[in-house]
Write a protein that binds this DNA or RNA. Sequence first.
DNA 1: GTGGTCTAGACCACC
DNA 2: GTGGTCTAGACCACA
Lengths: 137, 137, 137, 137
Amino acid sequence: MSQQLPSTRFRLQLDLHSGVPVYRQVIDQVRGGIASGMLAAGDQLPTVRQLAVDLAINPNTVIRAYRELELGGLLETHQGTGTFISMQKMKQADAERGRQLAQIVADCASRAGAAGFTVDELIEELRGLAVEPARRR
Amino acid sequence: MSQQLPSTRFRLQLDLHSGVPVYRQVIDQVRGGIASGMLAAGDQLPTVRQLAVDLAINPNTVIRAYRELELGGLLETHQGTGTFISMQKMKQADAERGRQLAQIVADCASRAGAAGFTVDELIEELRGLAVEPARRR
Amino acid sequence: MSQQLPSTRFRLQLDLHSGVPVYRQVIDQVRGGIASGMLAAGDQLPTVRQLAVDLAINPNTVIRAYRELELGGLLETHQGTGTFISMQKMKQADAERGRQLAQIVADCASRAGAAGFTVDELIEELRGLAVEPARRR
Amino acid sequence: MSQQLPSTRFRLQLDLHSGVPVYRQVIDQVRGGIASGMLAAGDQLPTVRQLAVDLAINPNTVIRAYRELELGGLLETHQGTGTFISMQKMKQADAERGRQLAQIVADCASRAGAAGFTVDELIEELRGLAVEPARRR
DNA sequence: GTGGTCTAGACCACC
DNA sequence: GTGGTCTAGACCACA
């Protein structure tokens, strides 16, 4: 159950000026790492103290992020050993999924509207992405 | 300056359990309404008091949302008269515009991808927002 | 005391999208007309109804502007005759003058700051104006 | 991210009888402070609660002013940390910048002129705001 | 009638 | 401790 730190492939990157809460960024990036395959079940995450030092943030903030991820079932902490990616339970309820999609789309449309774009322009631009398989990250 | 309320086509819908601030939801939906074509330059928005009653929220919350939209240049408020969709802020140079659209789309696609949605699902959801050109005015 | 309307020289011009209250714009422009010499003591102003029609605004708004100007001693209204420019009493108290200057300067500095300019740049640019006699209006 | 409050050099001063909204005065003075060099990128502003106490106004009024400044890109707020002067919004192209400065200056001079002040008086008053480069940091 | 400003105070989120 | 959101309600300014 203990495994090499995936340090060469997975690096957290904070943007303190984005307005997004720090703990939220940590959570999102761990989730993203799992989704993208950079983090696999069993991988060990950096220790709370180490990550706090690396990111120059408060350890409490790391603890909070890890705790929320653990509550969500994505992490497992083992006293004295470390924090690890747990066996997935990825699939969310469909209702939750739908709501999430709707929120992403609404946000996207909102930003487009504020910038003077129409939804049609948005769709057109998205089509451009759909053709190329899109190497993500 | 005075024009029919677009009431039959534009309806605000709050989700008080989403965790998204109410004033933010109002802002996002107005911006989305502009992007989708449901709201056009010159249209009058519901009055502060009316919208507060409709949504069962405090007038101050509506004012806050309207104000932020006005600061962003999307609305114009005229004391004693009402609140209106402003004449679009001058369209920026096309190059800058294209870059901006690309960024919004990329960000949107990235978030959707991280959550396990395909670009096609995104497009499908966006279509739900788009509105046929419609005979306006 | 009744004299030709100075219509060919003095025209009010409103900007309904400026955010400046309509009655304020009327007041300021009449004051400006007097200061610039376009309006002289004894000149008759447009009637309330006429001006309301010309500017497509509410007569109450015109009344309010004229009333405030009269309170300030710049206009005289004569029942059944019309509204006229009164004999000047232009010079304000020095204190009031100082406060006015301070406000203009503060506003100017504020806008400069918001746009990323320094006060020094502002002064430099103003110097450019000081050399040419500057034909005003 | 944390830095000494510039308390000895930057002091807000309200005029409750000027008719200018309190939140507006706060905004204007912060923007003026940036323009005059009293406030530099990274400086922390007084906390919301502290400023509210100092000025004897409601914290909400301070929040409102800070928020508008943040929307304008001049401030960054970090929950639980404080409010800071943001790194200047990228300086625009020089041409655009020059045009903008000219407009601010022209408007300022115009208002001053209409009120019977000379450009020299304007410059003199502005000098009062400017601050010697000073050793900062 | 419209929107604008300000206060007082509760409760939440983040560090 | 920091800032953020929302409410309730008073009072003002404008058309």
